[in-house]
């Protein structure tokens, strides 16, 4: 189980990403969802309906912030204006932790709006960890880094991705948001055993797990978040739970978004996998029967 310093002492169950097509349903029906994850950048605005909806949802639910624009691997360093906007939103949401991606994304002020891969070198690990230490100190809240899906590897790699993720998070002393779908996608694209990845990561740092679907093409997989979770990803999830214990779990569904009920039913499948695994871990404890 994650050290409480990586989760702000908060134990969360199953959540889903808060997405615009579900706003009306959530506000009207108030479904029994444990928590919602928000894309931080969508609410880094001065005012307007988006913030009003967020405030209303926060009256009923725990919200956790997940960013796509910190870019801790940027060679130019961190964008302090971005961190200031993030901190303002952190104060508004009372999120127990925040997460973003172990990636880079902009050069000299020009932004890719993508989660771009880093070379797995000791030098890049050191520089990225330095940025993350600055970010966590500035934001004054537990920070977790998510492993991205990737489609390319660099010629100068010196270690595996799972070694790199662990190295950066240890050096920066931050948590991990383990995305088991991303592990699967990258394992297909780069030809490694995804279980090696899950088996290696420092389990005490895993503050949260992401699950999602993807799109498979003939020669590669793209992380589109527009399908249900496939069985091999559930297997990775089960192994992650075996190693990490009960961990806040979130389903991402970002394109071709179906009804709220369909997304929520998919997310709830994680409870079956989680409870089965936890029962195997600790047969003496009473986990909800399924």
């Amino acid at each position: 189980m994650a050290d409480s310093r990586f989760t702000g002492g908060k134990m969360l169950g199953t959540g889903i990403g808060l997405r615009v097509p579900h706003y009306d349903h959530i506000l009207r029906e108030k479904p029994a969802v444990d928590w919602f994850e928000i894309i931080s950048e969508n609410y880094m605005v001065e005012g307007g309906r988006a913030l009003a909806v967020l405030d209303s949802i926060m009256d009923q639910y725990q919200v956790v912030m997940h960013g796509v624009g910190m870019y801790p691997g940027n060679g130019n360093g961190l964008d302090m204006d971005h961190l200031r906007r993030l901190k303002k939103l952190i104060k508004r949401t009372n999120t127990p932790w925040i997460s973003d991606h172990l990636c880079w994304g902009s050069v000299d002020g020009s932004v890719s709006h993508d989660l771009l891969p880093l070379p797995f070198t000791f030098d890049v690990a050191r520089k990225t960890a330095e940025n993350l230490r600055i970010a966590q100190d500035f934001l004054e809240i537990p920070l977790a880094m998510e492993n991205i899906s990737s489609y390319a590897e660099f010629t100068m790699d010196e270690m595996t991705e799972w070694q790199f993720l662990s190295e950066v998070c240890e050096l920066a002393n931050i948590g991990i948001l383990l995305d088991v779908n991303n592990i699967y996608v990258s394992s297909f694209n780069h030809g490694f055993d995804p279980m090696d990845y899950v088996n290696f990561i420092p389990s005490n740092r895993v503050a949260q797990i992401h699950i999602a679907g993807h799109s498979r093409y003939e020669r590669f997989i793209i992380d589109t978040h527009d399908h249900p979770v496939i069985d091999p990803v559930w297997q990775l999830y089960a192994r992650a739970i075996e190693r990490c214990g009960s961990t806040a779990t979130l389903l991402e569904w970002d394109a071709s978004i179906p009804s709220f009920e369909e997304v929520w039913q998919e997310a709830k499948k994680s409870e079956k996998w989680r409870n089965n695994q936890l029962r195997e871990n600790e047969p003496s404890k009473n986990y909800e029967a399924v």
Binding site: V20, Y23, D24, L27, R28, I39, E41, N42, R49, A50, A52, V53, S56, V68, H101, H113, D114, L115, S215, D223, T224, H225, D226, E252, D254, A255, S256
Partner: peptide, 17 residues
């Protein structure tokens, strides 16, 4: 916000088809 939202909500997302 109880009024159903008819317009596009200008929001970015990391994911796209």
């Amino acid at each position: 916000i109880d009024e159903p939202w008819q317009e596009k909500q200008a929001m970015s997302s990391q994911a796209m088809s």
